[in-house]
Amino acid sequence: MIRRMKPAVIRKSVFLSVIFLTVAFGLSSLAAQENLGKGRINGTVVDENGNPVEGALILVESLQTTTKLEGKSDKKGHFAVAGMGTGMWRITASKSGYTSSSTEMYVRQLTTNPPITFTLKKVTGLAALTTDETSMKLFDEGNKLIEAGQYDAALKVFEEFMTKYPQIHQVRLNIGTCYLKKEELDKAEAEFKLVLEKTVEVYGDYKKDPAASLRALSGLGEIYLKRNDLDTARKYFTQALEISPEDEVAAYNVAEILFSHQNIDEAIRYYEMAIKIKKDWSKPYHKLGLAYLNKGDYEQALVNLRKYLEMDPNSPEAPQVKSIIEAVEKIKK
């Protein structure tokens, strides 16, 4: 005989079934969404010479979901990460001071996955600097100290920087600049010459690193101006411009150095060189006019100052230039 269940019992059974199905479905969806499971990967991280890289971050990312897992390499460069579901995963090995390396692989849960070997290349020189935020901040701090005239403090910062990145010889330009501003000319000269030596050692030619070579040669030129050795200064300035003969800024900067040391005729030559390279640049006309004014050549001073105003009438210096022109015109009368 078939017995009928009571309505309350039926309702309770249906309710429990619904709960069970809902929970089961939810767990199934969650597992699918997270793509977690029993999958395991392992491998080794080494450098270019095959030496183990300790402390490399191993980032494992599902290509099907947003799930991410992490691990670290040990002293022998070995790593292992577990918890992956079946499917495609991207594995990336990275460490500060090295280029990162990644691969994609199909991870299985029921069989052993093949080991992975990552080779990380050590980043050197200026490229290494850009990957190190702390050192970049240190470098910027040193430059700000130079701008503020705090040369001793700047030297400490750059020397600290050099202990970490001795291969970045370009930083010696900043050290040389500090010594130059402090009038410690022998030390400044040593730093600028070291930059040139390292440039040839690394690149084989000054022109392969024109920015650093230009600054070093210009710095040496300024040192010899301070020593009142115009012939040697001229030699270095000439070398500087041979590196960048079409660089109007380089010619202008040399002129500025010469003008600041009251070598007016030499300054005029380099201002005119800057204008010859780039005729539509107003700045050299302004300084060329002032240089002629210092020389007492009022006619040429007016020609260049007027040209400057014609080219850049709304510049911040325009009111002062107008006043100078008016004063010179009165003197000429």
Rank of each mutant, 00 (worst) to 15 (best):
E310Q: 10
S96K: 14
T22Q: 08
L293Y: 02
K6D: 11
T22L: 13
R108D: 13
A240R: 01
V53C: 04
S28H: 12
Q167M: 15
E222M: 10
L145S: 00
G149V: 12
P284A: 06
I223F: 05
S323G: 14
L30P: 07
Q167I: 11
S28Y: 14
V254A: 02
L36I: 14
P210N: 02
A93Q: 05
G176F: 08
I257L: 15
I331Y: 07
H78V: 14
P313R: 06
A93F: 05
L293M: 13
E54M: 11
A274N: 04
T163R: 04
S282N: 01
D247E: 10
Y165I: 14
Y224S: 08
Y285K: 01
E191S: 11
T199D: 01
K68P: 07
Y252V: 13
E242G: 00
T119M: 07
T117A: 12
I331W: 11
A212Y: 00
I275A: 12
S100Y: 04
K322V: 09
K295D: 09
A127V: 10
R227H: 03
K332L: 14
V249I: 08
D205M: 10
K12C: 13
T232W: 00
S244G: 09
A153C: 07
P52M: 04
T119K: 06
V171W: 00
K278Q: 10
L110H: 11
D297T: 13
E246K: 14
A190Q: 08
N42S: 11
K122H: 12
A190G: 04
V249N: 11
K6G: 10
G85T: 09
D229V: 05
K122C: 05
S73M: 00
L59Y: 02
T131Q: 05
N42Y: 04
A127I: 08
A267K: 03
T22V: 15
K137Q: 05
R40H: 12
